[in-house]
């Protein structure tokens, strides 16, 4: 039921792990539904220089996490925000219809991590102004 690409990213997921001093971390999903994704971003000069993930979920959830992290590496924040769940699914040669929500989760986790980064940036800026 899964494409070869999905099975490849599921059996050899790229970028599994954590980033200690991440610029942004996003966690989405919930255990009740059987999917949790957490994406860690390391951003320098607005470019995503490193990315890692941890996922609790099915084969499609793990494969979409892996693919999404591959797709954002080296991209600017603005470019990364343009990545859609459709693009992630397409890069995996498609997902079974019941699994499309997994690709949505990858997009959401990425956006949440970027939002976290932007909030931290904002807080830093405000702190700098207050000084």
């Amino acid at each position: 039921m899964y494409s070869e690409k999905v099975m490849d990213h599921f059996s050899n997921p790229r970028n599994v792990g954590e980033i200690e001093d991440a610029s942004g971390v996003g966690t989405v999903g919930n255990a009740k539904c059987g999917d949790i994704m957490r994406i860690f971003l390391k951003i320098e000069n607005d470019v995503i220089v490193d990315v890692k993930f941890k996922t609790f979920g099915c084969g499609a959830a793990i494969a979409t996490s892996s693919m999404a992290t591959e797709m954002v590496k080296g991209k600017t924040v603005e470019e990364a925000l343009k990545i859609t769940n459709q693009a992630v699914a397409e890069a995996l040669d498609g997902l079974p219809p019941v699994k499309m929500h997994c690709s949505l989760l990858a997009e959401e986790a990425l956006k949440a991590a970027i939002e976290d980064y932007q909030k931290k940036q904002q807080a830093q800026k405000e702190a700098a102004q207050a000084d």
Partner: peptide, 8 residues
Amino acid sequence: RDMSPMYQ
């Protein structure tokens, strides 16, 4: 489990 945020 090494991949699971819940386990972490």
